[in-house]
Simulated assay, not measured.
Amino acid sequence: MNDSALPFPDRSPWWRGHTPLMWLAAAMAALVAVSLIGTVTDHRTLTGLPIWDKSVKFALSVAIYAVTWAWLLAGTRRRHRLAWWAATVAAAGLAIEMVIIVGQIVRGTTSHFNGTTAFDGIMFDVMGASIVVVWLATLVASIAVAADPAADRARAAAVRWGTTLSLIGMALAFLMFLPARGVPRPPSISGAHTVGAPDGGPGLPFLGWSTAHGDLRIPHFVGIHALQAIPLILAAAELLAARIPALRAATVRIRLVTVAGAGYAVMLALLTWQALRGQPIVRPDGWTWSAAAVILVLVVAGVVRALRAPRSAADPAAAVGFPA
């Protein structure tokens, strides 16, 4: 396969294309190691979980974000400078957020929604401002990457679906500032993850997602990581193309990406609706089960239709594979 047929230009090794993001990823990997040691040696708890549990989760998520965006930016042909600077701003904003999270852990208090003291309030305001900057910078980078020409339209579609849904997932965090709706909340607390109860109740191991009430962290998490999920679905289709001839056609892969993206978006809406109703993820009611069943049927039907739809004789069936 010629380099000209690749969806991304040859810039190996790609991880050298954005030094700030890769330094951020390396720092987060180190923080994961330190935090895991903290979960063993530091027996303090916060909102019902080991106090270092939060930094493990956030560091992992930020590391995945940084590596994914470094990989995406390595393939941009146009507007590369704009995307590079936007990602640099996002990396700086995430670094600020992580410094505050770790600092508050060391102090033994929460970082999010905390206005207990003037200092806590300032830290949360700074963190909130940094996240808004990260969202805006990610939006700019997403537009630059999505507008970039690509030799493989299925991969371009996967990136566009992934970045769009990831931005929506990030924005869902603002729902955590909704009024408590009958749940007592101290004046010093400006928001909550849990819907229908204060934060800190029973939750899933490590993740901490509430098992007794709704939890807005679930759609927030699922949405953010569409950036990895949608391209991975396409990567799986490309790998299966060796055994399933229909997947070798570009139009089929584009249809499958569209089905995956649309299905993911509807699933994200369902998870958000479930959380806002105060319903725990482990105990869905009949309405949630019914909606999930409808989504599953529609996705399966979409996949079948994508595989069986007629294809043009000129449709390329070129070899595929993500760049190393």
Rank of each mutant, 00 (worst) to 15 (best):
S12T: 14
T19A: 15
A25C: 13
A27C: 13
V34I: 14
V34E: 03
T41D: 04
R44A: 10
T45R: 12
T47Y: 15
I51C: 09
W52K: 11
K57A: 02
L60M: 15
T68L: 10
W69F: 15
R79D: 13
A87H: 02
A87V: 10
V99C: 09
V99P: 07
I100N: 03
S111M: 08
H112R: 05
F113N: 02
N114I: 03
D120M: 07
M123F: 13
F124R: 09
M127V: 10
T138V: 12
V140R: 02
V140H: 04
D148P: 09
P149N: 00
D152K: 03
R160Y: 06
W161A: 00
W161R: 02
G162R: 02
G162N: 06
I168N: 02
M170L: 15
A171F: 10
M176W: 03
R181G: 04
R185T: 13
G196N: 05
G203E: 12
W209N: 09
S210P: 05
A212H: 14
H213L: 12
L216A: 05
R217I: 01
H220Y: 11
F221D: 05
I224A: 06
H225S: 00
L232V: 10
A242E: 07
P245N: 14
A246S: 11
A250S: 15
V259K: 02
G261T: 03
L268Q: 10
L270C: 05
L271V: 02
W273I: 05
L276M: 04
L276K: 02
Q279C: 09
P280G: 10
I281P: 11
P284D: 02
T288I: 15
S290P: 03
S290H: 08
A292G: 02
V294I: 15
L296I: 10
V297R: 01
S312H: 13
G321Y: 08
